[in-house]
């Protein structure tokens, strides 16, 4: 808990200086982290895969050989290696490679946005609950408990019954389910941090509650939130693919890995590549985010400092 103590000494310094000093500290914190991360080959591999997948997703309109939704009923279920179709065609004669590339765009975007939404609300609620305590804490955490006990597919079905099926609604459902994860991490850290001297000092200096929460508590819990979020992206991509697999998420003709996997299931005997390839893509991206997340956690853990 090195950085906290150093910050705590800032209590005698004028406010402006304490702030700029902490900024230096923060920057100073990330450099060794990246250096340590670079030594972790698995994390680098994970980051590499993520860069490639995001690169392909961003460049989809350029690199994708075909329109992913172009139907050709006379050229169905062609195996990988067929001329003109590197990874073959699906049950409607659409190019599998193009659909995988465009599907990555959808899957990764959904995963990242779902995490951002969950993180935004989770961190905010966790800060309030942990900092104010009392009735706030009780009410917020009981709601969070209820959310945790709620199966996400059931929540998704409820949301979809109200707003109709679609990728955005599925994303909203899984983000809501992701909120407790962040709220609990943040609340736990804030509970111990709020008793520390540097926070007490801010009280003494007359800082407002919001200022303390966002300027002093938030930066100190952010490293654990970043680790959690990186690990969570993989889970969110899986959940979104799962929802699409069940028909609750992406709607045809959207290329999405979960949908492709689900549709491919009917043809597993005659065209196994239709379910294997999107399955492999989901596996790779989830693995990559987990490797990176694990690496980040180790790199950010002060106890592992050499």
């Amino acid at each position: 808990m090195e950085p906290e103590r150093e910050q705590a000494t800032g209590k005698v310094l004028p406010r402006g200086r304490a702030w700029s000093e902490r900024e230096e500290k923060t920057e100073g914190m990330w450099c060794p982290v990246l250096r340590r991360l670079w030594k972790d080959k698995f994390a680098v591999l994970g980051a590499g895969i993520i860069v490639v997948i995001i690169g392909l997703a961003v460049l989809a309109p350029v690199v994708s050989p075909y329109d992913p939704n172009q139907v050709d009923l006379l050229n169905r279920l062609k195996p990988p290696g067929t001329e003109g179709h590197l990874l073959g065609t699906d049950q409607l004669g659409r190019d599998v490679l193009s659909r995988l590339i465009w599907g990555g765009r959808v899957s990764v975007a959904v995963g990242v946005f779902a995490v951002l939404i969950a993180m935004f609300f989770g961190v905010f609620l966790g800060l309030i609950a942990g900092y104010f305590g009392g009735a706030f804490d009780i009410v917020i955490m009981r709601v969070i408990d209820v959310l945790m006990a709620f199966p996400y597919v059931l929540l998704a079905i409820a949301i979809i019954a109200a707003f109709g099926p679609g990728l955005v609604n599925a994303m909203i459902a899984i983000s809501i389910i992701g909120i407790p994860y962040y709220a609990r991490i943040v609340r736990g850290s804030v509970l111990s941090l709020r008793e520390k001297e540097f926070i007490q000092a801010q009280h003494a200096l007359g800082s407002s509650n919001w200022r303390i929460m966002f300027r002093h508590l938030l930066p100190n819990v952010f490293s654990s939130v970043i680790v959690a979020a990186t690990l969570d992206v993989g889970w969110m991509i899986m959940a979104a693919a799962g929802m699409s697999f069940l028909g609750l998420g992406a709607q045809p003709p959207t290329a999405e890995w979960g949908v492709m996997l689900s549709n491919g299931r009917q043809f597993i005997r005659v065209a196994p590549h239709l379910s294997l390839l999107p399955g492999l893509a989901i596996f790779l991206v989830v693995l990559a985010f987990n490797l990176l997340g694990d690496g980040l956690r180790d790199a950010l853990d002060p106890h592992l400092k050499e």
Binding site: N69, Q70, V71, L92, G247, Q251, P252, P253
Partner: peptide, 21 residues
């Protein structure tokens, strides 16, 4: 599968069909 094909045929004459499952 049948409706996705129907959707593709409709888009060729300018009808944008949004599928809801």
């Amino acid at each position: 599968a049948m409706c996705t094909a129907i959707q593709a045929y409709l888009s060729m004459v300018g009808i944008q069909a949004e599928i809801q499952q």
